[in-house]
């Protein structure tokens, strides 16, 4: 039972002048997989992610995302993925309803479909009482849950989540992960970065980038065995430490 690959990167590289931000990374992500994309600040995660979502042209190497080429078919990629970051998620000055309608429109959904999705989403998240409130007035955790749901509006094959839970309280953080499990269970591929190492354990597979290269890639269980440690936090510390030594 071999599942299809929805991301395939081969020797993907990005240089800025004589600095190599992403150095020949190769990996595959399967349909419905929760793939954790980890690395220290400045390791090249954001640059790699930008190439995969079609907003930064690689310097060399190849990659396909949702079956489309990252050089020539970036518009198709954008239609087939969802993206959510911690920094920019929703418009604070629009209400919950307006945000959903706006993003539905951006993704090119029909009015009927938007209406249907809006009702479904508001009821699933239990936002009935506050659907006419400005998003700016909501607690961060609610915003992030709403933002994740909005990134799924157009039923993308892959969702890219860039530190979705930073600063979110522990209970909401776990509700957020339950939403991720649910989406993955329904076949959506999840590509997620995080600095919470307990969240790395929730992923099916995890890659760890160090100075532009993928230094480790496996299931959390196998990585812990490989590095003979108890937690993903220790795997992370060990990898980054080893690199610092001359």
């Amino acid at each position: 039972m071999k599942k299809e690959n929805v991301i395939e990167a081969d020797q993907l590289t990005k240089t800025f002048g004589d600095f190599t931000a992403v150095n020949a990374i190769s990996f595959e992500v399967k349909k419905g997989e929760i793939f954790g994309f980890l690395g220290a600040n400045g390791a090249g995660k954001t640059t790699a992610m930008k190439m995969l979502i079609g907003i930064s042209k690689p310097s060399s190497g190849t990659a396909k995302v949702a079956g489309f080429d990252v050089y020539s078919q970036t518009e198709f990629i954008k239609k087939n993925i969802g993206y959510m970051s911690q920094k920019f998620a929703l418009y604070d000055d629009l209400t919950v309803k307006e945000n959903i309608t706006f993003f539905g429109g951006i993704y090119g959904l029909s009015r009927k479909k938007i209406k249907e999705k809006r009702a479904q989403l508001i009821s699933e998240l239990g936002l009935e009482d506050i659907s006419n409130k400005l998003v700016g007035s909501l607690p961060l955790g609610w915003k992030q849950k709403l933002s994740f749901s909005v990134s799924l509006l157009h039923e993308p094959k892959i969702v890219f989540l860039d530190e979705p839970t930073g600063g979110v309280d522990p209970i909401t953080r776990r509700h957020f992960w339950e939403m991720i499990y649910k989406a993955a269970d329904q076949g959506t591929t999840i590509f997620v970065t995080t600095h919470y190492m307990d969240e790395a354990e929730y992923c099916d597979r995890v890659s760890i980038m160090v100075e532009g290269k993928i230094e480790a890639l496996d299931t959390p269980k196998k990585l812990k065995e490989q590095f003979k440690v108890e937690s993903m936090n220790d795997v992370f510390l060990k990898l980054a430490r080893n690199i610092e030594a001359p």
């Binding site: 600063g167 600095h195 190492m197």
Partner: peptide
């Protein structure tokens, strides 16, 4: 919040 958004190695 000196360590918000900072990776585990730098946090340590």
């Amino acid at each position: 919040e000196p360590t918000t958004g900072v990776d585990p190695v730098s946090r340590k």
